[in-house]
Amino acid sequence: MNNEWPLWEVFIRGQHGMSHRHVGSLHAPDAEMAIKNARDVYTRRNEGVSIWVVEAVHIAASSPSDKGPLYEPSESKVYRHPTFFDIPDEVGAM
């Protein structure tokens, strides 16, 4: 029997209008406790306004060994970057 609590990944939104960012992980018996633990472990210095937790086993991840096929093809395709347009000064920072 496995006595370890499942692992949860924690995402916190720092302020309204921002997206949730991954901040770390923790162990908890269920989702409710995971949120409480996240509150205590990751927001004690006033870091967040919203917490998401997801059980780590539910995250599908790409495999590091697939790095070549997955990412290298895009390295040589500079035309995919929208850097060839002249942007009028009035537009300001993009």
Partner: peptide
């Protein structure tokens, strides 16, 4: 017993 409880109790 676990890190998470440790921090919660200390808080």
């Amino acid at each position: 017993p676990v890190l998470e409880e440790d921090i919660a109790l200390s808080n």
